[in-house]
Simulated assay, not measured.
Amino acid sequence: MDRVIDKISKINIFSNFTKGELLKIFDNIPYSVKEYSKGTLIRNSGERVEEFMILVNGEVITEMIDFNGKSLEIERVKAPDILASALLFAKENYLPVDVIAATNVILIYIEKKYLIKSFKENSDFLLSFLEDVGEKFNYVTEKLRITSFHTIREKITMYLLNLYNKQNKPKEITIPLTMDELASLFGVARPSLSRVISEMQKEGLFEKKGDKVILNNLKKPI
């Protein structure tokens, strides 16, 4: 379990706990471990979410089927991470997507009743869970807002200006996401995102160095 704890300690829900505290949590809670080979359908769209699912190893893809029967990739989730935590305590807790193993995958499952018991025994664990659900809600809200803009340039502009307003710094802002995560947030391919960022830098709108961005002449799209 030591190796597993080292991995899941990187997940937001568990990041504020020491290794000893995490070992104590998992020593007092029943859980099961399941392995899936690449290409396996882990969960069907429409299934109820009744277990807390921790992705320990590998990567999963979430997919939807459109009206023409074509599979649409919605998101890729890499370990370590939590799957569908926001649905766990919803009344209508049905998965809206299929969950498929993109690589060989290891998942830890904790039944809802045991998770509730652990929350009662450890209020910090409950608070951490609620904070993580809130952060994921904010992410989805941000994604919906950004995808309402048509061009990649508009998406980048609004994202950076929103960060500027939140971080309240003179000109330099810090981007908390990687390029892959930004591409996922914007719903675009990473090469396309990189190309537009490069074009905007050449135009002198901003300068990007690592996760730091210095705004020069960036204006809200009309």
Rank of each mutant, 00 (worst) to 15 (best):
E50T: 11
N122M: 08
N28V: 04
I156M: 02
G20M: 04
M179F: 04
G58K: 03
K209H: 09
E181V: 15
Y114K: 05
E207G: 01
E92V: 08
G20N: 13
K19I: 13
G210Y: 08
P30T: 13
K91T: 07
S198G: 06
F17W: 12
V99P: 02
R48K: 14
D132I: 04
K220V: 07
R76F: 06
K166C: 01
L41E: 04
D132K: 05
R3Y: 14
K169Q: 14
E73D: 10
L144C: 11
L185S: 10
K7V: 01
S198P: 06
I156D: 00
D6L: 10
E181P: 14
A189W: 01
K219Q: 15
F186S: 07
S123D: 11
Y164R: 09
L163F: 12
F206G: 13
I152S: 11
L83C: 14
S194F: 03
K143T: 14
G46H: 14
N57S: 10
I175E: 09
T141K: 10
T174S: 10
M1G: 15
K143E: 15
I152N: 10
K113T: 03
E203D: 07
A189E: 15
K7N: 02
M158Q: 07
E111L: 00
N28L: 06
D81M: 09
R76E: 03
K10L: 15
A90N: 09
P80R: 09
S123E: 15
A102C: 08
K171R: 15
I100R: 07
K19S: 12
L22K: 04
R153L: 03
R76G: 03
N138E: 07
E50I: 05
L130I: 05
V49P: 01
K136F: 02
F17T: 06
L72D: 00
V213F: 08
E59K: 13
F149L: 11
L218S: 10
D211E: 02
N138D: 08
I8P: 12
G39V: 09
N216F: 09
V133M: 02
F186D: 04
A90F: 12
R43M: 06
S45L: 06
L115Q: 15
F119T: 12
K78W: 01
N104W: 03
F89Q: 01
E73G: 11
P80T: 08
T178P: 14
I197P: 02
V196Y: 07
G58M: 05
F186T: 10
L185N: 09
L115K: 12
L177W: 07
G204V: 11
E207S: 11
M53K: 14
E63C: 01
T157P: 00
I8S: 12
K19F: 13
D211L: 00
T103E: 15
R145F: 15
N138Y: 03
E207R: 01
P221S: 08
E47K: 10
L144A: 10
Q167I: 08
I106Q: 14
K19V: 12
V56E: 07
L55G: 01
L55W: 01
K155G: 01
S118Q: 11
N104R: 09
N68S: 11
F125G: 06
Y164L: 13
V77F: 05
R76Y: 04
V99F: 02
G187W: 05
V99M: 04
K10H: 04
A84T: 06
K202C: 10
L95C: 07
K171L: 08
